[in-house]
Amino acid sequence: MQDQFEWPEPKHEADKLILRNVRDHGCHIVGIPGANPTFAFSIGLFLNYGHPELVIFGQNSENAQAVINLIRDRVASGQKFVDGDISDDLLENGYKLGFWQVPFGAYPEYLGTAIWFYWRSRLAFPCLQVIWQDVNRRFPWEAECSLAVKEDQPLLKEAIS
């Protein structure tokens, strides 16, 4: 993968930080706290580990970063997550995370900086949406899931076809 990759030209200090974090930590996490709902996504997992990038909605910046970093650590040690996976060993207290493929049609709205990062290399990077459960351990696609949790997590695979 890295032999096909051409690093983007940084134009600002923020761009340099992204490149440094991808090199030094395996990924950079972009938080979008002003969005409704808030979301965060990774940049660098595909380059460094051949794993889809990640996007998570409805979590504050600290929680989103913690979840993405937990997954990054697993990916760095060789674990792979794919569309439809449910993981029950990442979070505490029996909470699970789901993984759904993000359709390319959602990329411009949610993954702009990742598009910039991969653009020069013309790499069509994959991305997985990380989906979390409500307090009753229900996912947003389940009928009895909390309305607030459903509103905080647009299911991109269903919304954009």
Rank of each mutant, 00 (worst) to 15 (best):
M1T: 11
R23I: 03
K157E: 02
F57C: 04
G105D: 09
I86P: 03
V102P: 02
A66C: 06
S87N: 07
F125K: 07
D88I: 06
I43E: 00
I160V: 15
A148N: 13
R122N: 15
G112S: 14
V149E: 12
E109P: 02
N93M: 10
V75N: 00
E62R: 11
E53A: 09
Y118T: 03
I29D: 00
D88S: 10
F139V: 07
R23K: 10
N36E: 13
G58H: 06
P126K: 08
Q133P: 05
L155Q: 09
H12W: 15
S161E: 10
H12M: 14
V75S: 00
I131Q: 00
F41Q: 02
A35D: 10
A14P: 01
V22T: 07
I71G: 01
S161W: 08
K96A: 12
L90K: 07
L128R: 03
G112I: 11
G34I: 10
D3M: 07
Q153S: 05
E109H: 10
L47H: 03
P52H: 04
R120M: 14
S77C: 12
N36C: 10
N36Y: 10
E142S: 08
L17H: 15
K80N: 13
D134H: 08
L147T: 15
V149S: 13
L47E: 02
T38W: 00
K157Q: 06
F41K: 04
G78E: 05
Q59P: 03
V135C: 11
V75P: 00
K80E: 10
E92R: 14
E109C: 08
C145D: 04
L70C: 08
D85S: 03
F125Y: 09
H12P: 04
Y118K: 04
L156D: 01
K11D: 11
N93L: 10
K11C: 11
I29Q: 02
S87I: 05
P126A: 08
E142P: 08
F5D: 01
I43G: 02
H25V: 05
K96G: 09
A159F: 11
V22I: 12
W141A: 12
L155R: 09
E144S: 09
A35L: 07
D73A: 08
G26H: 06
H12C: 14
L90I: 15
L91H: 11
A143E: 14
K150F: 12
M1F: 11
P52W: 05
L147H: 15
D24L: 13
K157F: 06
I32E: 07
V82Y: 01
D83Y: 05
K150R: 15
S77R: 14
F46I: 01
E13K: 12
D89C: 05
D85L: 06
E109L: 11
A76I: 01
E109M: 12
P108V: 06
D24N: 15
I18W: 03
